[in-house]
């Protein structure tokens, strides 16, 4: 059984919700990413979602776009991120998921990517611009090699797509909380609970909510009807606004612990 499945099993036994933390790999550079990952793990994140920078990240708002740019400027590539995961695996055992636009994977070579990712200890991959319609071959190969292809669902997804994608999804379902790009929001979208409830009816795997979950209150609210949350832009913003590593790591630890605390409270 892979790390993601194990992780959710453990979370379920402990009767709590999952916390996935997203950062852009290589922001501000890959060396710093290592120390940031240690902090995230030590602060109680269940899963790390490591963003692969892309020149044209279409699903991202300004915060993660800027992080992508900083990362590319520091020389980050998909190859280097895979090496980074290999390095991290020497000391860390939490599940690691890569979030990437399709083109870097396509240019890397889809099969080669799957093999290398699995070899270094990547557990899953989220490719927002590779919907199930285009992912058939990739998914078959990933499944064969043991890499979870995590699919997304959105507020706009009709019932038949929910059923289709819930069946194809591996690891967990990433529910996009709002009709929009990634970013910090002040409230949850209307109707979020109903939609997640209907997805959970079709899905055997956990349903997590991402996009716009930017503070402990929203995280607590979102875990009332989901299996966990994905926090991204708020974390990336902290990294952006704290250039001193010691200060940054302190604030990251505080922030992630506060989210963890909020979703651990009995509702």
């Amino acid at each position: 059984m892979n790390r993601i499945t194990n992780c959710f099993k453990k979370i379920k036994n402990e009767k709590r919700k999952a916390l996935v933390v997203f950062i852009t790999a290589g922001d501000p550079d890959l060396e710093e990413t290592k120390s940031i990952l240690d902090i995230i793990d030590d602060s109680g994140a269940d899963i790390i979602e490591l963003g692969v920078p892309f020149s044209d990240p279409l699903a991202d708002g300004p915060i993660i776009q800027a992080a992508s740019l900083r990362s590319l400027k520091s020389g980050t590539t998909l190859k280097k991120i895979i090496s980074l995961v290999q390095e991290i695996r020497k000391t860390r055992d939490l599940p690691i998921v890569l979030m990437t636009s399709f083109n870097p994977v396509f240019v890397y070579g889809e099969q080669q990517f799957v093999e290398d990712a699995v070899f270094v200890g990547v557990d899953g991959v989220i490719i927002p611009d590779l919907p199930p319609e285009e992912a058939a071959e990739f998914s078959v190969y990933a499944e064969k090699k043991g890499l979870d292809v995590i699919h997304l669902l959105a507020p706009t997804s009709p019932d038949e797509r929910i059923r289709m994608i819930a069946k194809k999804g591996r690891g967990f379902i990433y529910y996009i909380s709002l009709t929009g790009t990634t970013g910090v929001r002040v409230q949850l979208a209307e109707g979020l609970g109903d939609k997640v409830a209907s997805i959970k009816q079709s899905s055997d795997i956990p349903v997590l909510i991402g996009f716009g979950i930017s503070n402990p209150d929203l995280a607590r609210e979102a875990t009332k009807f989901s299996d966990g949350v994905i926090v991204g832009s708020a974390v990336v913003k902290l990294i952006e606004s704290n250039s001193d590593p010691i200060q940054r790591n302190k604030k990251l630890a505080e922030f992630i612990s506060s989210i963890k605390q909020a979703i651990s409270d009995p509702c």
């Binding site: 699903a59 399709f102 927002p128 919907p131 669902l153 959105a154 997804s157 797509r161 994608i165 996009i176």
Partner: peptide, 9 residues
């Protein structure tokens, strides 16, 4: 169609 799920419908 290489787009995020939000646009697929």
């Amino acid at each position: 169609k290489y787009v995020i799920e939000t646009l697929m419908p």
